[in-house]
Design a binder for these strands. Structure first.
Length: 506
RNA sequence: GGCAGGGUAGCUCAGCUGGUUAGAGCACGGCACUCAUAAUGCCGGGGUCGCGGGUUCGAGUCCCGCCCCUGCUACCA
């Protein structure tokens, strides 16, 4: 049994959870569930980034304290993750004392081990008083902040702490060249290699004008105390999480699941920080793509057009998880559309897995009164074992879609198996031994499917598991039971329809 | 602009080092079956493989040019 510590990006406490947030959590959760099935000792970390000027501003607009805004959003995010069946073990919040002290400790470690890595330097730029933040060229139009066109931008200089990121260029180039598995998929790795070719600039580690964040542990030479800038506040959460009193996480993490937009921070800045602090690097960073809606990326505004809670309610959390993980490739962008959702729901869930379960379990009830016969191994068992191998290969390389594909190929194989053996004919002819073989094989196949589908359809998986007469939790079943599912002699039952057709619903 | 990756059936995509009539799933049309959520199985229609050249006995697969799409091009979480 090996440890598997995985994380997702912490979500910014500046708005409600939307499809983009949910997609990442569902994918990471599928991986967590798969690793547990494999017998790993999993620790799954999720959380929220609650500092920064935007949070302070949004809170001010709402007339509440930043801490209250963070608290209310943390509740909303956690409620959403419960609704989706996300099985995280820890929910970190960057405003907690443990995180704040952890950040300061990490910074001190760098000061101690590599004193030259932090230095004071003037940072200058166009400062918008309305935003209380420095603006980049892209955010400036006609010499004014695009969000506050009536205000005047000021050219401001401040002295703050810088981190000597440039010193780690060679280290990072070696890392990405020698360990291609560190950052996946390859498309993202290539981008980072290209970026590194251009050379690295040092980055701010503190800011004078920030108000809402972790105090930087050392003052600048003028004596002023500043606030830790985003990189050194947010990224360390993966490490500080392991130091919470109630955490069983152990550094380093095996996997960071992130969105492709923050690849650079995780593939460049974070490894450099860890190296500077003398800490081991995470084993792997996976940058997933985005779910698009009518060709546009999900964001706060797009979230308003597709309400996440309503989308989940339409077919339920299992179907929602399944659809997104099967429709959107985990290494690239994909599209969300109700048309595709309905197609997949009908073809794959209702007519595919759902109907296979219904016909198999009904025949067990009708012909054997629910007593699952042992029977001999059949070609369906062979196909099941072959599917398991391909499933493991796909899931181990984090190809969630391919993993689901394998499970549904087994569904197709089982339907063909039923058609070819026509159990109804065997029953009429009184060919009982043959009928036992067929029904036993179907029960074992459903057992296998219940485990293979559990990362995608956790609730349905459990229903299926119990329906074939297995006892306990599908989620904690031993993986080796897939070789010879322990259902012979068990009592099966016919559950309610797993995936009702839309017209049946209303 | 530079770098990277793509443009293959209505849709989503496979097609390794060039080689028999270009494949899968979904959708669509017909047939069979009845255990099942009119579900399942079988058969079938459907593609100038972005455009134009070139190399070759032979190119979706290699080379050149062009068109289009996507990503990256650092202080946004």
């Amino acid at each position: 049994m090996s440890r598997f510590f995985l994380t997702t990006a912490i979500d910014y406490a500046n708005g409600d959870p939307h499809l983009g947030h949910a997609y990442e959590k569902m994918g990471a959760d599928a991986i967590a569930r798969y690793r547990r099935l494999q017998g790993d000792d999993v620790w799954f970390l999720i959380g929220m980034d609650e500092h920064g000027q935007k949070v302070a501003q949004t809170a001010a607009e709402q007339g509440i304290a930043p801490a209250d805004l963070a608290e209310s959003l943390a509740q909303r995010f956690q409620a959403m993750w419960r609704r989706l069946g996300i099985t995280h073990d820890q929910f970190i919040r960057t405003t907690t004392d443990a995180h704040r002290s952890g950040v300061q400790e990490l910074i001190e470690r760098i000061f101690e081990r590599n004193p030259d890595d932090f230095y004071e330097r003037a940072y200058s730029g166009w400062y918008c008083v309305g935003c209380e933040a420095f603006k980049q060229d892209a955010e400036i139009a006609d010499g004014h902040c695009v969000l506050h066109p009536t205000r005047t931008l000021e050219w401001v200089e401040e002295t703050n702490w810088f981190f000597r990121l440039s010193r780690y260029q060679q280290f990072l180039q070696d890392l990405h060249r020698d360990q291609p598995e560190f950052l996946q998929p390859d498309s993202r790795r290539n981008e980072i290699l290209g970026l590194l070719e251009q050379g690295l600039e040092d980055i701010s580690a503190s800011r004078a004008r920030l108000t809402w964040g972790v105090p930087f542990p050392r003052p600048v030479s003028s004596g002023e105390r500043q606030i830790t800038y985003v990189w050194f506040d947010a990224l360390p959460n993966y490490w500080t999480a392991t130091r919470f009193p109630d955490s069983r996480a152990e550094w380093p993490a095996q996997l960071h699941v992130i969105g492709k937009d923050i690849t650079r921070f995780h593939a460049v800045i974070w490894p450099a920080m860890l190296e500077a602090a003398g800490l081991p690097l995470p084993e792997r960073v996976w940058a997933h793509g985005f779910v698009q809606y009518r060709g546009e990326r999900f964001s706060k505004s797009a979230g308003a057009r597709l309400d996440l809670a309503e989308a989940i309610d339409r077919f339920g959390p299992d179907a929602f998880r399944y659809f997104l993980l099967r429709e959107v490739p985990w290494d690239n962008d994909g599209n969300f559309s109700w048309e595709r959702f309905e197609e997949r729901y009908t073809a794959e869930l209702a007519d595919g897995l759902g109907n296979l379960a219904a016909r198999s379990l009904t025949m067990l009830a009708k012909y054997r009164d629910g007593a699952v016969p042992a029977g001999n191994a059949t070609e369906l068992d062979q196909q099941g074992l072959a599917a398991i191998e391909r499933y493991v290969a796909a899931m181990d390389r984090l190809d969630l879609r391919a993993g689901a594909d394998v499970a549904w190929e087994l569904v197709t194989a089982a339907n063909l198996f039923v058609q070819q053996h026509a159990p109804w004919s065997l029953a009429k002819a009184g060919r009982n031994a043959e009928l036992d073989n067929v029904l036993g094989a179907l029960a074992r196949c459903l057992y296998r499917l219940s485990l293979l589908t559990s990362p995608f359809l956790p609730d349905t998986s459990q229903v299926l598991f119990e329906a074939v007469g297995a006892s306990g939790e599908a989620a904690s079943a031993r993986w080796d039971t897939l070789l010879d599912p322990p259902v012979g002699g068990a009592r099966s039952s016919v559950p309610a329809i797993l995936f009702p057709k839309p017209e049946t619903v209303s």
